[in-house]
Structures are given as structure tokens and as C-alpha cells.
């Protein structure tokens, strides 16, 4: 089981492009339909837990799924499996790319790519904002953090800790 988990998650890491939610269709195809180790509802449960624990969502979901299927060893095997393609491929790309970065066409291409990256980030902010900023207190926190970061560039660690503390104070005694 341990090796099977490693292999299944290696495949998921290899075919996954993008951020956290990109892992869902792959978990469904590999673990629900092919291997029948889990059902759809379990996948969504694991995903929602992966979303609210610290760290990279796809790694969290893999660790959690591995733990459920194979205990601590399963968790470690799944996690190693999902990150292994990244390690191999990124190290390959990173060692090759320096050979091409001086090329004129590559430089033009990267200017265009950078514009696309900024536009992608802008859209992520918009869609995440719509989902997660629902009242004026949340909007005030959002605006305050943007201004603070631009003016003082404080460490993100303090922003997260400060925001967490503020949430506990603002919502003290309130239920979900």
C-alpha cells in the first residue's frame, strides 16, 4: 500500500498544473474512479481540511489522504510522491533556463509572460476577494494590510499573526 500510494500521488503531482483546487479532478480520476480507494464526498472533505490547515493546499490534501489510507507511513509516502515531480522537473528547468535567458527572443517572451502573470494575480485577488471578503470589517482589514505592506513592507508572518489576533478579538463570543 505504501508504494502504491507513492506511485498514485507521483502521478497526481506530475499531471497537476496550477494551485490547490487543480488537485481535485486528479484525485477523482486516480483515487475514486481508477483505484476506488475513496468516494467523492471523502475527497471534498479532505480538500476542505487541506484548505484550512497551514501550508500548500495540494500537499495538505495529499498528506491527509495518505494518512487516512495508510497511517503515518501512508501520509509520508503520499506527500513525497506528490512533491517528487516538482523537484525533478523544476531542478531540470532551472538548470537549463540560464542557457537561454540571454537570447533575445526569450527575453521578449518573458516580458510578455510577466504581463500575463500580473494579470493572473490580479484576477486571483478579485475572485478570492469576492468569495472571502463579505462585510466592511473584512474589507477594512484587507485595505489596511495592502496599505501597511506598501508603506512599510512588514513581514507577512506578522500580518498573519496580527490578522488572526484581530479576528479573535472582533468575533469574540460570536458563533459561525
Amino acid at each position: 500500500m505504501i508504494f502504491k500510494l507513492f506511485r498514485a500521488f507521483f502521478k497526481i503531482g506530475l499531471f497537476m498544473f496550477g494551485g490547490g483546487s487543480a488537485i481535485i479532478p486528479l484525485l477523482q480520476a486516480e483515487l475514486v474512479e481508477r483505484k476506488k480507494w475513496l468516494n467523492e464526498k471523502e475527497i471534498m472533505d479532505y480538500y476542505s481540511i487541506g484548505q484550512c490547515t497551514p501550508g500548500i493546499i495540494a500537499v495538505n490534501v495529499s498528506t491527509f489522504t495518505g494518512y487516512k489510507l495508510g497511517g503515518i507511513k501512508g501520509a509520508v509516502a503520499s506527500t513525497l510522491g506528490v512533491i517528487m515531480p516538482s523537484l525533478i522537473i523544476i531542478i531540470m528547468i532551472a538548470s537549463l533556463i540560464n542557457l537561454f535567458l540571454d537570447n533575445q527572443y526569450v527575453m521578449h517572451a518573458f516580458t510578455g509572460i510577466r504581463i500575463a502573470v500580473v494579470a493572473l494575480i490580479a484576477d486571483v485577488v478579485l475572485s478570492m476577494g469576492r468569495k472571502n471578503i463579505k462585510d466592511r470589517y473584512q474589507f477594512a482589514i484587507f485595505a489596511a494590510v495592502v496599505i501597511l505592506m506598501l508603506a512599510l513592507s512588514i513581514s507577512p508572518v506578522w500580518v498573519i499573526c496580527g490578522a488572526g489576533a484581530l479576528g479573535l478579538i472582533l468575533r469574540r463570543g460570536k458563533t459561525v
Binding site: C52, V118, I121, A122, V124, V125, M128, G129, N132, I133, Y137, Q138, F139, I141, F142, A143, A144, V145, V146, M149, L150, P156, V159, I160, G162, A163, G164, L166, G167, L168, L170, R171, R172, K174, T175, V176
Partner: peptide
Amino acid sequence: NTFANLMYSIHPAAIAMILYAG
């Protein structure tokens, strides 16, 4: 509840930090 209350303000802060990076 504690967890939900924490995330109530961490989510907007995290999105703000992504905007700052953008």
C-alpha cells in the same frame, strides 16, 4: 468557532498580501 474566527480576518489579510505582491 475559534478556527472560523481566526480565518475571518486571516483570509482578507492573505488576499491583501497577494494584491501587494501583484
